[in-house]
Design a protein around this nucleic acid. Structure first.
Length: 103
DNA sequence: TGAATGACAAATT
DNA sequence: TAATTTGCCATTC
């Protein structure tokens, strides 16, 4: 079935293009995917990724420069980002002026 | 087929 | 300035 142009596939492609050590917002990914108002759906796609995915899902954060996940998932995302040089302050804030990638 | 869901974002209090 | 509400829309059930 020809499902290469559907929304999830476009989201995967865009996230795969986020450079090492950079981040993008859900809204940015949605816009690049051609649906500027579908930021929420981007989260929906990432939410269903298999746990063993190679996609750099952790490079996607919200527009406030903060991680949207909670609990253990939040800790894992923060560690993954810091592991590639993205600084996350004690209160979970990331400097978007430095790390944000807009395509 | 339609209601429910939600890793967001903008508007409103 | 921070908390709450409203709008949003692809996917799931």
């Amino acid at each position: 079935m020809h499902d290469e142009g559907n929304f999830p596939h476009r989201v995967w492609q865009i996230i795969a293009a986020i450079p090492f050590g950079r981040v993008a917002t859900y809204g940015d990914v949605a816009q690049l995917a051609g649906s500027p108002r579908a930021a929420r759906q981007v989260g929906g796609v990432l939410r269903r990724l298999p746990k063993e995915t190679t996609l750099p899902w952790f490079r996607v954060i919200n527009r406030h420069g903060r991680i949207s996940l909670q609990g253990d998932d939040l800790l894992r995302q923060r560690d993954a980002l810091e592991a590639e040089g993205v600084e996350v302050s004690d209160d979970g804030q990331i400097d978007m002026r430095v790390y944000r990638w807009r395509g």
